Structure formats: C-alpha cells, structure tokens
Simulated assay, not measured.
Amino acid sequence: MSQPLQIGILGAARIAPKAICDPAKVIPQVKLAGVAARDEGRANDFAKAHGIAQTFSSYEALIASPDIDLVYNPLPINLHAEWTIKALEAGKHLLCEKPFAMNSDEAKAMLAAADKAGKRLIEAFHYRYHPAFETCLDWIADGRIGDVTRIDANFDVAIRDSDDEIRQLPETGGGAMMDLGCYPLNWALHLMDALDLVDAKAETTSRGVDESMQVRLQHGEKTWVHLTTTMAAGTPFSAQMTIAGTEGLIYFKNPLAPHVNGSLSLRRADGSEVDQLRPVSPISTYTWQLAAIVDALKTKAPLPTEGAMILRQQQALDDIYESAGLRHLRYR
C-alpha cells in the first residue's frame, strides 16, 4: 500500500477546517501531518481540535520538514506569493487558497517557481471539482441550450467591517471582487474559452476597498457576461448563475457549494423544463477537490485549476480593478 499524502497547513485559518481538515478525515490516502501558526499556542489548539499529527514552531519549519508532501496555504492574500514560493523551493506541492495572489505579477512568479521546482501548484477553486459543475459544462458542450448568448452570475454575502477582518483591509488584499466576485469570474472563465473586459464599476468602503463590483465582459460579438458581487452589511447570501442560449437556459443555484441546497436545471426557450440534476451530490466541494488532487499527484493528470487558468483568472482581476479605477489595490 502506498504512503498517504502528508499535508501541512500554514496558519490556523477559519477556512482550513472546512477546506482541508474535514475532507482529509474521509479520504484515506491523505494524512494531516502538521500545522504552523504565528501563535504556537493557537497552532497547538488547532492541531488538537482537528487531529493533526504535529505542530511546527514556524512556517519555515513546516515547509522544511521531510514529513510534508503538500502544503495548504490559506494565509492572507498578501502572504500567498512569499510562502507559496518558499514552499515550492523546499520541494512541496502547493494548494493555494483563492484568490491566488495580489496581482498577476505575483502569480507569474509563483507559477515560475512551480515550474522550476517541478511541483504542482493548484488554486483552491473547490467548486470546479463538484459533479454538478461538470454536468453544467457537459450540457453546454453538448449544445443542449444552443449557442450561449448571455451569462449572469453573482456571489453576495455580508462581511463584517472590523480591524481584524482581512477581507476588508487594503493591505491584505481585501475587497468584494477579490474574496467573493472571484468565484463568478472563475465560473465564467471555465464556461468561455475567451472573455474580453468591457467595463467594471465599484463602490468603495471607508477603508478604500471595493464593497461591491459590477463587471461586464464579452465573448466574441454575441455573448455577454454580467457579474455582480457585494459584501455590504445586511446583504443576504446569494450565489447563482443563469446561462442563456439560443435554444434554452440553464439555471444553477449555488454553483459555489452545490452540496448545500444547490440545484441545476435546464429549460427550453419556451420555459418548459427539459432536465434537472437529481440528486445533487451531498459530498462537499472541498472533498471532491482533495480527492482530485490526490488522484492527479498519483497519475500526473492535469487539473482545471492550475497552470494557465490561474493566470487567466489573475489577469482578469487585474483588468477589472484597473477598469474600476482601483489598480492601486492590486499593485501597492
């Protein structure tokens, strides 16, 4: 029997239990081998709570350890490039949380480090690995709705405004488009092989980050993409995508996490329902993601959230912030 994939976690981040610890408990080919945090006491508590084998005294010690095969990086965005590159140079594979980097220059440096090290560098767009999204892609590829003419997508949720909320702070890569809107953008990029930015408009907070963003993109001359996102106080959770075609329409409720009350349906142009995905897999997107990574490291098969797609996404974010007059948030 082959040895399990040994995973090390940089930081006791809020997303880590859902994104990596819980999936690791149900995938026998992986082991939570270590965690490091700025506060060693916090790392000890995190390790105890999630059954992690070892606590490291520093990020450097974790990435230097021969006991670690893959590093999960959920640090604030402004630290992604530094610690991802250091871990790659130490010979580790990397799963880096979204959004990948502060800007495309950082992303290029990270990808170059992965190429030089001969290691895998994967962006953690977990939704992409769920069977519901695969079904959506298949319906479009099979021509079930004809030629795509319009995509409307949004991800909205309130994010509290406080001094310790990194998603609200310019210096840590905050902003609605970075944390939330990156998802609808990524959905669209996986649906369309080329997208050109038309324009972007933002409303900013008192701290100077984008509280909301509206984005228009175009594919060729006949397909329009409209993306919206907001993290304003009092905003209810909303994640959905509608894909209109010449012969029908796909409605995707919660593409972000289809396992949580998500649904996917296809209707003809006259409104009659043709197909519906039943059931939607209740297995979490994060579990599907980790299982795909384990398989890809074994088989050397490519993954949809690595390589050129990472740079496509990051360049699109740069262009959106430039268009909205907020380039200084990406290049500080």
Rank of each mutant, 00 (worst) to 15 (best):
T84A: 14
D152N: 09
N103R: 11
E60F: 01
C96D: 15
A37E: 08
S281W: 13
Y183P: 02
F125A: 10
M177K: 05
Q289I: 00
G41M: 02
G91E: 07
S281G: 12
G220F: 07
V260S: 04
E82R: 12
F133N: 14
W288D: 04
N103H: 13
A257S: 14
P304N: 09
R120G: 12
T235F: 10
P255V: 02
K98L: 09
I15P: 00
E60C: 04
T287M: 02
L277I: 09
P184R: 02
T204W: 00
L277K: 10
I85H: 02
A37M: 01
L249F: 03
D318R: 14
L217I: 01
R160E: 15
I166Q: 10
A188F: 08
Y321H: 13
A141N: 15
A188N: 07
P304L: 10
L290E: 03
Y59E: 01
A81S: 13
R332T: 02
A37Y: 01
A239E: 10
Y59S: 05
R216M: 12
T149G: 02
A324T: 04
M213A: 04
H259M: 04
I243V: 14
S265L: 11
Y251K: 09
M110S: 06
G181E: 04
Q214K: 02
R268N: 14
A124W: 13
S272Q: 14
K119P: 00
G143V: 13
L197C: 03
D147P: 06
A124S: 15
K300T: 12
